[in-house]
Structure formats: structure tokens, C-alpha cells
Design a protein around this nucleic acid. Structure first.
Lengths: 195, 195, 195, 195
DNA sequence: GATGAATGAGCCTTCATTCAT
DNA sequence: AATGAATGAAGGCTCATTCAT
């Protein structure tokens, strides 16, 4: 086992601190001072490891998206390759997994979403993610329906996921992940049977 | 006697300027200086009319939500009271009306959404709006299906609206409102016919 | 009886409002807006009647000093011209009269005192007042002792008056005017008997 | 490693600059910008070391009072413990020492006195100081007279000190410390001998 | 690698004053 | 006479960043 250098320790530490601080005080008030304090280290070091605040912010966003992607792939690997319903359910399930429902993650994500409209780098990262979700869904759906229809249904499911997620984000009771899965499943079953 | 009736002129003027500035530089960088400049008047006067920046921000959000509410009611007034499909379509249509797709409105709304997670006042305003949309939809759906199902379908449609809207917000090509209406309509028809 | 013009009404009204506001929020936070509000009239009018805030401030200080001077003369007019002890007592008594102990008056006076160190106009007004008190006292004392001694005793009594007044100004229980008179009287009796 | 020990350098530096600026332009116009400029450093650092302007102001007041207290104790330590007259003279003398007559110190003190009426923290500091002076004096006087009288004389001497100091503060020629000591001494001799 | 010192730009807000009505 | 609208200057404070150690 190689000895970990400081970079491998500090970076995740600061990324987690960033999410925690955004969760506590909001993106607007998440200063490097607070993030450093949360991580228990000097704020100056953020520049050392991330080249500035925006670097840290981008790394944090990438971290969240990577966690989601990894989670989806992990779930998919446990499901038969031709069980469309189960694979869609796996994708949806990961989008509402306990990690994705972590309050800090949710708030950070929404903050990024808003911020991405004005920050080209964040925007690019965000759009890659959007397209990937659509792509995952479409890939599975194409087994059961024509391409055009698969595209439409993929859009619908993606919208359902994001819509329920968005509405849950502001709800003080948090999200109802069972409801989310149920809604998508009902829709999908109905669609496959009757179209 | 001073110039009277200025509040009626200045308030909408400043609210519009706020949206424009948020559109241009983002919520984070929307300073009172820029808003005043955009409106062509002194920034100081924002305090005169709104008691501070947060007052202006809240007024802006209320303005957007009121526009949406007014638009929905207007559309509904033109549709037969028992034509469920047409009434749902009216609600959906207004959510994707040209005014609601105005880039400044879209960006402002998303900015508020993110901000509302940390600002109690904005949060309250936002939640009222969420519940109202659900309530509108449920009211119409109850004519065509049992209460429990109406609630479920209302949640789904609301999620579809918000999800499509959210995904469109980041898309540089803007939203595809026809697609939005189509997706919702397909979904609705599926439910009404086959369940 | 002549009909009073507005100036005769507004000026005392604003002067009183100034003292009340200084009492409530301190000299530092006594803005023209608050003073206008306290008087129930528009702040703009202060410029009309006093030519600006500093004009109002100076007028307020003059008003307080004039009240003191008037009060002293009134008391002296009721005391035999050769009763030194009684005349000194009259002067001291007026300095601790109920009007001079009015909290608003006390706070305003002390605020002026501090301010006078940096405002030439206020300084001039203040010094006239100081010299007048000394002059009053010396005039009475000269009947009972040599000039040089009268000067010294006058300084002592003036210092006692101001010192007790100053210490009382910060005391939340207010001043003890009986104590003040007693201290001065004891001192004077002792002095006249034994020197 | 950063430069260490800066707090010990910066804090006195900024406190002195505060007094100098108050002396030059008055408490009302003593801005952090001017104080920073006077100290030759960036105004921002005031927040770093004192947490804001009010922190600096309080520290400045405490510094002045501590200097006085230290000076009194030093003088008292050089005087026999039972020589009442000499000990009172030591206390009075320090109150009119050259340091306490420093124009900046005098103006700052008076400014604080006025300010203390509206600032709870300053008020508390100020009252501690008042009581301490009384306590010092009473302790010495009790050796030479009954308790009740000692209290009365202590109040009188404290009033004399403050009154003479206050009158001197506004006098452009500054204070006459010899006169001050003389007045107090005469007063005291009168009381000790003849009552 | 890591830190505290230090800075300068920028923000929100307050406020005395002026002006048109 | 009186007012509300409007302004511009200034103030305290925050914050990301740089630098010497």
C-alpha cells in the first residue's frame, strides 16, 4: 500500500468541507474562510491545491457527478443486461439513493445548477451529466421501442427524476424516494403495455 | 408637492432591472449598483422603495410568481370548466409560455430556487407556489380519477413540468415548449385511458 | 396677541425633537430623518428653517444654554442681593434643576460638550457658557473674600458642579441633586468660616 | 511560517492611531479608513485584529483606563501607606499627569464619555472606572474621618477632579494641572482640619 | 507543506442635501 | 410652506488572494 501524499488527503477533505459549508450557509455565503475552518486547515491552502476558489468549486461538482455515475454503473452491473425495467429502476434508484439525498449533496447540487447558468466551466460539466442520464435511459429503452419513442420516453423519465428531485430539494421533509421510484415505474409499465 | 405616483413607476422598473441583471451576470453578481445602473437610476433609491436588497429580491420573486398565477387563471377562464384535458393543457401551457421562457425570467427563477434553500422568506414564497401548482392540477384531475390517483398524477405532472423546465434552463438552445406540452399530454392520456 | 408664524412654531418643535432623538439614539445616530419623524414633519424642512443639520444642532445647544441662563437669573432675582450663600445656592440649584436633569437635556449637553472640541462654532458657544458660570460665582464671592481667593473658590465650585453633573450623567440612577447642593454648601460654609 | 508576534505590535499601534485620529477630527469623523492611514496599514486589518470598529474603540478605551490605573498604582507604591494627604495627592496627580493631559487622550476620553451613554459596553467600562476612583479615595480618607464623611469627601474630590478635567478639556490653553492639585489640596486640608 | 499577516476591491447601506411640485 | 423623490458621497465590513516565514 503506497503512502498517501498530502494531495490525496487534502483534496477530498476540502471537497467534503465545501459541501458541508454550502449546506450550512448556502452557496452565496460559502467563503473560503468557512470552508478552511470546516476542514480544520488554513484557507490559504485552497489556493495551493485548487488554484483558487473556483477550482475548488469545480472539483466539488465533479466529485458529486462522479459519485452518481459510479453508483449507477455499480447498480447496473448487478442487473441482467436485458431486463429493461430493472435497469431503468437501477438508474432511477441511484438518482434517489441515500447518498444523493444527503442534504449537503442536494443543496450543493442545486446551487451548482443555478451557478452553472453563468459559469461556462460549470455549465459544461453540468451538460455532460444531463446528456449522460438521457443516454443511459435511451440505451435501455431502445430494446423495447422504436428510436423516436425511446428518445421521448427517456426525456420524460429524466424530467420526472429531475422534477421530483427538484421539488424534494426544497421540501423540508426531504425527498420521498419511494414515491419517486413508484411514479417512474408506473409510468413505464403503463407505457410499455399500451403503446 | 413632490412628484406623486413614483412608486408605481419605480417598483416595476426596478424589478425588471433586477431580472435583467440576474440574467446578465447571475444572482451572485447582481449588485444593487448594477441593478440601479440597469434601471438608469441611483442605487440608493432601492432602499427607499424596497428597504434594502433583500426586499427587492423578494419583490422580484413575488412578481414572477404572480405573473405565472395570473397567466394560469387567464388561460383557465377561457376553457370549459369540465374539459379536464384542456384545462391541464392550459396550466402546462402557461408554465411554458413565452413570458415564462424569457431568459431573464428563467435564470431569475432558478437562482431563487437555489437561494430559497437558505433564505426563509424566499423559501416560504417558493413553497406556496409549489403547493398551488399541485392544487390546481389535483382539482382538475379529480373529475377523471379517484382522489389517491389524482394526487399521484398531479405530482407526476408537476414533476414533469419542473423537470423539463429545469433541463431547458441550462440548455443554450432554450426550452422546447412544444415538446414539453407533448410529453405531458402523452403522459396524461396514458393515465386517463388505461388505468 | 399676534398670530404666530410658522417659524415660531417649527423651530422650537424641531429643537425639542432634536434633544429627544439624541436622548433616544445618541448624537452619533441622530439623523435628520429621525428628527423629522420625531417632530412629525418632513426632514427636508430642517434645511428650510436651519440651513442644514449643523444649524439645527447649534440652535439646539443655544436653546439649552439659554434655558439655563434664564433659570439662573430668575432664581437670583428672588434672593436678596447681599445674601452670598443664598445666591450661590440659587446658581447651584438651577444647574441641578429638574429641567437640567431631564435625561434628554443631559445627554444632549454631554454630546455637545464632546462635539464642541472639534466644531469651532459649538466650541465658542460652550466657552461663553463656562465663563458665564465662573463670572456669576465670582461676582457673588467677591463680597466675602479677596479677589484672588474668590477666583479660586469660584473655580472650585464650578468644578464641583460640572464634576457632579458629569458623574451623574452616566449614572443610570440619574443625578442626586440634593447631594450636589449639599456638597457645595458644606464646602462654602467651611471655607467662609475658616479662611 | 508567517510573521509571528504581530498582534503585539499591531494592537497598540492601532489603538494609538485611533486616539490620534479622534484628536484630529473628532470621534464622529474617526473612520477606520483614517485610522488605518494614520497607522500606515490597511483599514481591513482592523477587523482582523479587533473584529470591527467597535472592538477597536472598546480596546482603545480600555487602554486609556488601564494606563490611568497603572499610573495611580505606581505613584501610590512610592508613598507611605499612612500618609493620607500624600496618597490623595498621588491619585490626583496621576489624573492630571502629562500623559493624561495628552491632547489626544483628553479628547478621546471625553468622546468616550459621551458615547458611553448610548453604548452599553462602553458604559460598563466607564462605570467600573468611576467606581474605582471613588474606591481609591474612600480607602485613604477612612483613616482620617468617619465612614459617612469619607464617602462624601471622596465624592467631592472625584467631582473636583472630573470637573476641572472637563473644563480644561475644552480650554484651548489646555489644563492647569498645578491649579488642579492646589484646589483639591486646599479642599482636603479644609476638611481634615476643621470638621 | 502550511500558516497567519496583509491587502485592495467591492458591496450594501446610511445620510445630508437638493429639487420639482 | 411643505413634501417626497432622488442623488452622490462615504462608511463599515467581507472576502479571495498574495506573501513572507
Amino acid at each position: 500500500m503506497p503512502k498517501l501524499g498530502m494531495p490525496e488527503v487534502r483534496r477530498p477533505q476540502l471537497i467534503r468541507a465545501t459541501m458541508d459549508v454550502i449546506n450550512q450557509v448556502g452557496f452565496l455565503n460559502a467563503t473560503v474562510a468557512k470552508i478552511g475552518q470546516q476542514a480544520g486547515i488554513s484557507p490559504s491552502i485552497i489556493n495551493h491545491y485548487f488554484g483558487g476558489k473556483s477550482g475548488l468549486v469545480e472539483a466539488t461538482m465533479r466529485s458529486i457527478l462522479k459519485d452518481l455515475s459510479t453508483g449507477i454503473n455499480l447498480r447496473l452491473s448487478k442487473v441482467p443486461k436485458d431486463d429493461t425495467l430493472a435497469r431503468i429502476e437501477a438508474i432511477v434508484g441511484e438518482n434517489f439513493s441515500s447518498h444523493q439525498q444527503d442534504e449537503a449533496v442536494v443543496k450543493t447540487w442545486l446551487a451548482f445548477w443555478a451557478q452553472a447558468m453563468h459559469d461556462p466551466t460549470l455549465n459544461r460539466i453540468q451538460r455532460v451529466n444531463e446528456k449522460r442520464l438521457l443516454s443511459y435511459l435511451r440505451l435501455e429503452l431502445k430494446r423495447s421501442m422504436p428510436h423516436a419513442q425511446a428518445q421521448m420516453v427517456a426525456i420524460s423519465i429524466a424530467a420526472l427524476i429531475d422534477g421530483i428531485w427538484l421539488r424534494g430539494a426544497l421540501n423540508p421533509q426531504g425527498m420521498n424516494s419511494n414515491l419517486a421510484r413508484q411514479v417512474v415505474q408506473d409510468y413505464l409499465l403503463l407505457y410499455i403495455k399500451h403503446s
